[in-house]
Amino acid sequence: MNDSSIEEVRPVLQARDVSVQFGGVKALTDVSLFVRPGEICGLIGPNGAGKSTFLNAATRLVNYATGSIMLDGQPLEGVETRDMIGRGVARTFQNLGIYASMTVLENVMLGAHHRLGGSFAKAIFAPLRARALERSNREKAMAVLEEVGMANLAARAAGSLAYPLQKRMEIARALAAEPKILLLDEPAGGLTHGEVHEFGALVDGIRRRRNLSILLIEHHMGLVMSLCDRIVVFHLGRNLAEGTPAEIKSNDAVIAAYLGKAA
């Protein structure tokens, strides 16, 4: 990919000059970011840089004061939080967004609630239709669990899994939503060095099979550098840098603010 061809592709997600304020505190100031179709874009920066806040803004969990976020060229202003997943944006949460008391399968099936959800009305007045939806939801959820290598854990309570598996289950749930873009917030948290490599291969495989766009927040630099096509760096709620992994590694401002000399 060279720069001139890139400009012609419409980004899946495009944020321009987004600012988010919590009371008097500015969490994000005029940040911009885009993710192209089929691309893994890294979002890195020190703690408190506003990375998760950006994800929350892009999924309408927090409101942005100024700026615009477009999804497939459509502005997100006024879209309800609950409608984001139906528009193709699925995410995972930094501090786990799982339902510990539900089984792994139930958690993943919730990912398809917006597509295969049987409403109350359906459940009460059209039970056969609801049951058919439930069956197809279960089959699809099992297929996704197979894809991430967790099919054998389907009946386990989610809360009983080790932390990295809970994170992986959360990715499976996001995939069950069949999104256009996947927003991953520190998905490799808790993994050992060896596991990170395998995890990178999993994410890359998912992207290729599904031709998915991914925005990846991660502190594990080895993973970010090897997996991402492009990296955006936030610092203190602002854009600090953007470029290929090689460019970011050698960017003086990024080294000073985040990577340090060792990188």
Binding site: H113, G118, S119
Partner: peptide, 23 residues
């Protein structure tokens, strides 16, 4: 079924339920 899962989801964590499309 799905309605029951959505019910439990909004009970246990409304914010995540919303992100999953639960009204």
């Amino acid at each position: 079924g799905d309605a029951g899962r959505a019910l439990r989801a909004q009970r246990d964590n409304p914010q995540i339920a919303q992100a999953l499309g639960v009204n």
